[in-house]
Design a binder for these strands. Structure first.
Lengths: 228, 228
DNA sequence: CCGACCTGTCACGAAACTGACACACTTCTC
DNA sequence: GAGAAGTGTGTCAGTTTCGTGACAGGTCGG
């Protein structure tokens, strides 16, 4: 049973969504503003957040950005609820970590379909279990990496990159694929940037003898393989 | 080679894009408005559409929505050309089936990169299986070759050559065929170069007794046959 | 506003890869 | 057996690819 949090100041919307989700077998919790949202998330981590675009006080995007900065809440998928009248707002939702958008008004069927699509995607890429290979451990939930018991510090990008590698070990990925998976599909950065982050990962891993876990495959890309 | 359709009412833009795409080996067709776009798509299905956001009469998004409703055209990937990064427009576009966005002005390099990324994603890339013959194993996913458990190092060309051989065992290929398949259809290299790479393959395989897997067929070419 | 941190890009040198060539060697033809 | 044709192999320079340090812009908290 998935727990879903809706953050919207309009009570009718919350009711409608609650009704639709209830029929589809989701458990819904509600928040009317940013403060309640933080409180609810803190009380129990939801599996997905439906975030209204306009809220009294803070915009939904502000909340998403703040969630992104927090290691505990960073990987909760978010679906934005937007209204047509706000199209002129300049936003950068996808790069902030928003997984999908739904325009109001929406049908219950569309809502359910999108929620399930996002959940399916995020479950594939976010196993809640800790990943460990030969002394190198990464825990997606606590957002922590340890090598032989010693905690390592990584920036968000390097963390995502290492997480992706550890989720798909022993397989070569091109720079482009790594950009798609650790950066996002809709960002345009130079492929060589991947090299730099690989370097930074290796540098951080080197003191613990784990730098060779990431191998260069000339002409193809990079591979995470702790056994080699 | 891929045929790409650009739908844009500004002739200079079409020319610039045409120039950039021509250099990258794409064939470009042009449409200045919705009517021409439909006509071009109907005449020959393009592999990808570059759609201007603002068009006289209909917006690019309207065209995309209409294409989406038609079974024949709904799976043609679309890249939107937007005047500015109006992210809120992206919201509606992604849900309508737009695959990517490029903000004007854009560089030719970015255009090419995004087109190739979208094309690659939309093409069904079947995961290749691991190939093994008598102790010699090649895994396309991890990009690894092992002989009796020992890992062997190969450059990109030798790897492609060996992969092709192992995908088509027990069959003679001329040097020209090998160049076509392991190098590429439209590259010009001396046929004798194949000999050199065969030599390098054999050299790498020899310490593990696998060098005789590749046989010379005098006057014809080479053959991969582990049993012979 | 400042300073710490994260990020993307660039430039440079090092290393690896590649294709070509020359020559030695084998096989075939007469 | 001689010559011709086809193939094996060592070598080398040009090119490509990668590692790495430096740096500027951005973000965020104070």
């Amino acid at each position: 049973m998935s727990t879903i949090l809706i953050v919207d100041d309009e009570q009718p919307i919350r009711s409608m969504v609650g009704f639709a989700l209830g029929r589809a077998g989701f458990e819904l919790r509600e928040a009317a503003d940013a403060e309640q949202a933080y409180a609810e998330i803190d009380r129990q981590r939801p599996e997905l957040i439906l975030m209204d675009w306009m809220l009294p006080g803070a915009s939904g995007l502000d909340i998403v950005r703040r969630l992104q900065r927090n290691a505990e809440t960073q990987d909760i998928p978010v679906i934005m609820l937007t209204a047509r009248t706000e199209e002129s707002d300049k936003i950068n939702g996808f790069s902030a970590g928003v997984d999908d958008y739904i325009s109001k008004p929406f049908s219950p069927a569309e809502l359910i379909a999108r929620i399930q699509a996002v959940l399916r995607r995020s479950r594939n890429t976010q196993p809640a279990e800790s990943l460990e290979f030969a002394g190198l451990a990464l825990d997606p939930l606590s957002h922590r990496v340890t090598a032989n018991g010693v905690e390592l510090e990584f920036g968000p990008t390097e963390f995502r990159l290492l997480k992706f590698f550890m989720q798909h070990p022993d397989r070569v990925y091109t720079r482009e694929q790594l950009l798609d998976n650790a950066w996002g599909r809709n960002v345009y950065v130079e492929e060589r940037t991947v090299d730099v982050h690989i370097l930074r990962l290796r540098k951080a891993l080197a003191p613990h003898g784990c730098d060779h876990y990431i191998q260069t495959v000339r002409g193809a890309g990079y591979r995470f393989s702790p056994t080699a």
